[in-house]
Design a protein around this nucleic acid. Structure first.
Lengths: 237, 237
DNA sequence: CGGCTCCCCGCCAGAAATGGGGAGGCTATA
DNA sequence: TATAGCCTCCCCATTTCTGGCGGGGAGCCG
């Protein structure tokens, strides 16, 4: 199995299109002997893309029902760094439980393991393995393959980012130091008066920075600029 | 070496304090036979922490000179997902070149390899290996150890997040669906009028959502609320 | 040197956001 | 059943933001 995984990683590294990623998820299913392997991602523009072995019916259902908003896997992964075993999440809410039943009805296995991956510009991706198992057997599986899965997940993400960059190639705007501090102050909730006092400059000067930053970020207003700056990862709250 | 690395990972997993991380960086230096190993991170509050084998003199120098603002390694890693070999970065700017010379004078090797790691809440960390080598030998070293280093970097980060969480343990506030959509619209740069039209409700109702979200998020104003929501990962731009 | 970006300051007027107040219906959970 | 949370709507006055105008000095790069 190790050798097969190695060759899969190698083939991933030479992938040139999304179809290759799709094919890779299918091969992974065979190699790992699991029901489903899925990689999907949300980029900074909120666009979504997925490659995986879920049935079209389930994907449609998921979107139609807006499960994204209640999926404990999404929630859990969004707030943590480490991969999660689905059973460890909180499925107690009515909506989540209903979703889980729905998933089973659409051919998913009862066990899952999802690796969250974060890239620059707020990029966020999930790599999921799903199968029908009992709890102990699944934990053993996860323990045995955690590292390989992480490597593979990263290879997927590397490629996904590569493809995206080809399409757009959005160079992150460079803000001047003062602009950055100004934006940071605003993002921290200060009013312009407070921020200008904090920075020891006139309120008008501060305004100039904010406006400049807004233009550089292509933002429609200050709030938007802060949002973009945060998403691009050029400021921290 | 593999066995030594394994046992290091194991010891990392049982680490209970920052001192253990510090010790781990020193052990790694021995195992990999490199000059320096450093892990450092910036959390959502902008606080910094580092464990590593750089000399105090260099760390002080780095802070004093505010190299953080011009360091190509920081810049490069901030904008990409994949690890970088230092030599591949752009050191042509005057400031960067001066910094590099300064680094060599403070005992750093000429070669480096840095892995960027991103966690939730805008957490961002770097794991760096540094040594004195020629280019080819360094590339070979990196190729040979890339995966091990990634695993180790993740272990470091897992622990760092664990320690931090102990200190704070902030439960993310739950916004209602409408509040989330409202916040998302605002974060996208819409004015309240636009957002309310988008959602098909009166502008006042939208205001109520925003205010409610603001209170739940403990934010001082709308912009702050958006910033927090983004940082907490409960909305996407 | 000229051109560039960054840094800093002033005034004005209109547009937008904010912070209170109040009111009703609907659903779900306790 | 009752309480709580969510969703929806309206008015008020005040503060804040936005977009435009003008000015000057410092430093870097070709």
């Amino acid at each position: 199995m190790k050798a097969k995984l190695e060759s899969l990683v190698a083939s991933l590294q030479t992938a040139t299109s999304l179809e290759h990623l799709q094919a890779a998820t299918e091969q992974l299913c065979d190699i790992l002997k699991v029901r489903h392997v899925v990689y999907h991602w949300v980029n900074s523009d909120g666009e979504r893309f997925g490659a995986g072995t879920y049935s079209d019916a389930w994907v449609d259902r998921y979107l139609e029902k807006d499960y994204l908003r209640m999926d404990p896997v999404i929630f859990g992964c969004f707030q943590r760094f480490t991969p999660v075993i689905w059973k460890d999440l909180d499925w107690s809410s009515r909506a989540a439980a209903a979703m889980f039943r729905d998933a089973l009805a659409h051919g998913l296995g009862n066990q899952g393991y999802t690796i969250p991956i974060r890239g620059p510009n707020g990029q966020f991706a999930l790599f999921t393995v799903n199968d029908e198992r009992d709890d102990d057997s699944w934990r053993a599986f996860v323990e045995a393959h955690a590292r390989d899965l992480m490597i593979i997940a990263h290879e997927f993400n590397k490629k996904a980012l590569e493809f995206e960059r080809d399409g757009e190639g959005s160079p992150p705007p460079a803000l001047s130091p003062r602009e950055l501090t100004a934006m940071t102050c605003i993002a921290k909730g200060m009013s312009r008066a407070q921020a200008s006092e904090e920075m020891g400059i006139s309120e008008h000067t501060l305004r100039v920075y904010i406006e400049s930053a807004r233009h550089k970020l292509g933002a429609l207003n200050t709030t938007h600029a802060v949002a973009r700056a945060l998403s691009e990862g050029i400021i921290l709250v």
